[in-house]
């Protein structure tokens, strides 16, 4: 179980997280949504101890990880797998070496067992036979799938996804969503998916947390979120730009720039 208590995080004068509290039960699948720059990625990095909060607490299975140092956190992180926004594959290694990394360093498996586990993980993400490719030879979608294979190969209890579909075309995004659901159901893991893709959030989350200006704006089921009458939630769900933020409505917007000089 993941429990977050009154989390606050500032970068200089900017408050990114402002008193965030929630619980995620074991086996639950939660989508964290919100506009770009609202602190979603910062929040997910606190869950695995990649960042330390200014105040507040994060508990993993009842154990506070905030006072832990980097070496103590290694034990807790064995429960986690994380898929990064840019995949974060080790570019000096092949796909197999990437996926086998944690097994080679943190387990006593034989090379034959490791090869078997890697092949199985690559099959799960629909990339069989890519073991000897380099990350540079892969497309964006393939890289994210290798990142997912690397995260699931040692069968963690909790999987964190940081914007897994950002920058991918709708068809690849759909396949990544299917994969997240498949992994969730097959491995029975707790999933936390950070996204600003509403379609993705609705499909992969059986619970949705919406962040707005560093606070939790909504913490409910996807259906409740989509039927919400809260204007901030509605604006995000419907994807409507704030008139104040619409550049073309700004009085000093240089419309003359687009006119032909001879007009």
């Amino acid at each position: 179980m993941i429990e977050v208590r009154d989390l606050q995080k500032n970068f200089g004068a900017q408050r990114v997280l402002d008193g965030i509290s929630f619980q995620i039960e074991s086996g639950e699948s939660v989508a964290i949504i919100g506009r770009s720059g609202c602190g979603k990625s910062v929040l997910i990095k606190h869950l695995i101890g990649l960042m330390k909060p200014d105040t507040g607490d994060v508990l993993i299975d009842g154990e506070s990880i905030v006072p832990m140092d980097e070496r103590q956190l290694l034990r807790v992180r064995q429960k986690f797998g994380m898929v990064f926004q840019g995949a974060a594959l080790f570019d000096s290694m092949t796909v197999k070496e990437n996926v086998a990394f944690a097994l080679r360093r943190n387990s006593k498996m034989t090379e034959a067992e490791i090869s078997k586990r890697v092949a199985r993980a690559l099959e799960v993400v629909d990339l069989p036979g890519t073991e000897n490719k380099n990350p540079a030879e892969l497309s964006g979608g393939m890289r994210k799938r290798v990142g997912l294979a690397r995260a699931i190969v040692y069968e963690p209890q909790i999987l964190l996804y940081d914007e897994p579909t950002t920058g991918l075309d709708p068809i690849v995004s759909d396949s990544i969503d299917q994969l997240i659901i498949h992994v969730r159901d097959e491995l029975k893991v707790t999933s936390v998916v950070v996204t600003h893709d509403m379609r993705s959030a609705r499909r992969v989350g059986n619970h949705v947390i919406m962040l707005h200006q560093g606070k939790i704006q909504a913490n409910c089921s996807p259906e409740q979120l989509f039927n919400s009458t809260d204007p901030i939630v509605r604006q995000f769900v419907d994807g409507i730009a704030d008139p104040k933020e619409n550049l073309i409505n700004q009085p000093d917007y240089p419309t003359a720039f687009f006119r032909h000089p001879k007009e």
């Binding site: 695995i48 101890g49 990649l50 290694l74 986690f80 990064f84 990394f101 944690a102 943190n106 995260a151």
Partner: peptide
């Protein structure tokens, strides 16, 4: 960060 999440 990926190294750290892989308990290394």
């Amino acid at each position: 960060d990926a190294l750290r999440t892989l308990a290394t």
